[in-house]
Simulated assay, not measured.
Amino acid sequence: MQDALFELPETPPEHAVIACFQLGGDDLGEPDQWSLVVATERSMAAAVTVAGVGEVDGNEFGGGER
């Protein structure tokens, strides 16, 4: 007889959350927008740390998005 209702994989699957910000100005946005995006990234990292669910993997600039 099996103890579990279903079998879990040995390694849990990976998931990602991708946040995209539409930036103004040139392709890299404006400096005041950068500070808001960085603050958001820090908030996300803190939430991930508290929840113990993964990591925030940085950011990318270009094409009017970050």
Rank of each mutant, 00 (worst) to 15 (best):
V37Q: 02
I18H: 14
E30D: 12
S35M: 02
V38Q: 11
A47H: 08
E60I: 07
G63N: 08
D32T: 11
G63L: 05
M44T: 06
V37S: 02
N59Y: 13
E14W: 15
A19Q: 06
A46E: 10
D26S: 05
R66L: 08
S43D: 12
L8S: 12
W34D: 14
P31R: 02
S43V: 12
G54K: 14
G62D: 11
A39C: 10
V17S: 14
F6H: 05
G24R: 08
V17R: 13
D57A: 05
G58T: 00
P13Y: 09
D27Q: 06
G25D: 12
G64I: 00
F6T: 02
A51F: 02
L5N: 10
G64C: 03
E14K: 15
F6G: 04
T40C: 15
E41N: 09
G25H: 11
L28W: 14
V56H: 15
D3M: 10
G24F: 10
L8N: 09
A16G: 09
A46Y: 07
A39R: 07
F6N: 03
I18G: 00
E14I: 12
C20L: 09
R42G: 03
A16I: 03
R42E: 02
P9I: 01
A16T: 04
A19R: 06
V17D: 12
W34F: 04
R42K: 13
T49V: 06
A45L: 07
G63F: 11
M1V: 12
A47T: 05
G24D: 13
P12V: 15
C20V: 10
G29D: 01
